[in-house]
């Protein structure tokens, strides 16, 4: 069965997403890496659904809905930040630093 290989691929993709969040400064690229992590988790759900029933696939459906909502709101926040600071580089966004 493909369960073990699927979980391995999913782990690699999740780790790559974590690496992207930690290594980049561009807020939009970091956001894309978060999407990558969500997809890695979706792959885990679908792989386990083969053995544990269709509930895993239904959870993927909900993850996708939450990801869509998150993308819409997050990108709107980024637009608002860009309008105030003219940048989406996280190093230049230090409003809360005393």
């Amino acid at each position: 069965m493909l369960l073990g290989p699927s979980l391995a691929v999913s782990a690699v993709l999740f780790a790559l997403g974590v690496a992207g969040v930690l290594l980049r400064r561009n807020a939009i690229v970091i956001f894309m890496c978060v999407e990558l992590m969500l997809n890695a988790v979706n792959l885990t759900f679908v792989a386990l659904a083969q053995q544990l029933g269709v509930a895993g696939q239904i959870f993927v459906f909900f993850v996708m809905a939450v990801a869509a909502a998150e993308a819409a709101v997050g990108l709107a926040i980024m637009l608002a930040i860009y309008r105030h600071r003219q940048t989406v580089n996280l190093q230049d966004i230090n409003l809360l630093k005393g």
């Binding site: 493909l2 699927s6 691929v9 999407e35 997809n39 979706n42 792959l43 679908v46 792989a47 659904a49 083969q50 696939q57 993927v60 459906f61 996708m64 990801a67 869509a68």
Partner: peptide, 18 residues
């Protein structure tokens, strides 16, 4: 990969939504 793992509906959803 979703198609290979017997989740064709989720695969189509992935293409449309993501």
């Amino acid at each position: 990969l979703f198609v290979v793992l017997d989740a064709q509906f989720i695969a189509v959803l992935q293409l449309l939504v993501y």
